Amino acid sequence: MADKRSKEKDPIDIVHQNAIHVETILKEQRYQKLYTKFSINPYKKVHILTDKPMSTNTDEQVEEDPAFLRRLRGAHLEPTKKYTHPMTESQEIGWISTPLISSDRSDRRLNFQRQNTEITKYMDAAWRIKEQTQNLG
Rank of each mutant, 00 (worst) to 15 (best):
I48R: 05
E64F: 06
R73H: 11
T56K: 15
L49F: 14
G74Y: 00
N41W: 02
E64P: 02
T56Y: 09
R70V: 06
V46P: 08
N57Y: 02
R71N: 08
K45P: 02
F68R: 06
T50Y: 01
H76S: 14
L69Q: 08
A75Y: 09
E64W: 04
D65K: 10
G74P: 00
P42N: 11
Q61R: 02
S55C: 07
R70I: 06
E60L: 10
R73L: 12
L69I: 10
L49G: 14
A75Q: 14
V62M: 11
K44Y: 00
Y43Q: 15
Y43V: 15
L49I: 15
G74E: 10
R71M: 12
D59Y: 03
K44H: 01
H76M: 12
E63P: 08
F68E: 06
K45R: 07
V46A: 15
V46W: 08
E60H: 04
K45T: 10
K52T: 10
D51H: 05
L69S: 05
G74S: 05
H47A: 12
E60A: 07
M54L: 12
L69P: 00
V62P: 01
A67H: 03
A75H: 13
L49R: 15
R73I: 06
N57H: 03
T56L: 14
N41A: 13
D59S: 13
P66A: 04
N57R: 04
Q61H: 01
I48K: 08
L72E: 09
E64L: 13
N41L: 09
R71G: 02
P42K: 03
T58R: 11
S55D: 08
D65G: 13
H47M: 12
K52V: 07
G74V: 00
S55K: 01
D65F: 03
K45S: 09
R71K: 12
V62L: 13
R73G: 09
K52P: 00
R73M: 11
K44N: 01
K44E: 02
D59A: 13
T56R: 14
H76P: 00
L49T: 14
K45Y: 03
M54P: 03
R71C: 04
R71T: 03
M54N: 14
L72W: 03
M54G: 11
H76G: 12
L72S: 10
D51T: 07
K52I: 09
M54S: 13
L49Y: 15
I48W: 04
T56E: 14
S55V: 02
D65H: 07
G74A: 07
E64K: 11
K52R: 11
A75W: 05
D59T: 11
E63N: 10
D59V: 04
N57V: 03
H76F: 04
A75P: 12
H76D: 13
R73F: 07
R71P: 00
E63A: 12
P53K: 02
N57D: 09
N57C: 05
K45H: 06
T56I: 13
P66W: 00
E63D: 11
T56Q: 14
P66T: 02
A67L: 07
D59G: 07
L49P: 09
N41H: 09
V62I: 14
E60P: 00
P42I: 05
R70E: 14
K44R: 01
K52M: 09
P42A: 12
R70S: 11
Y43P: 02
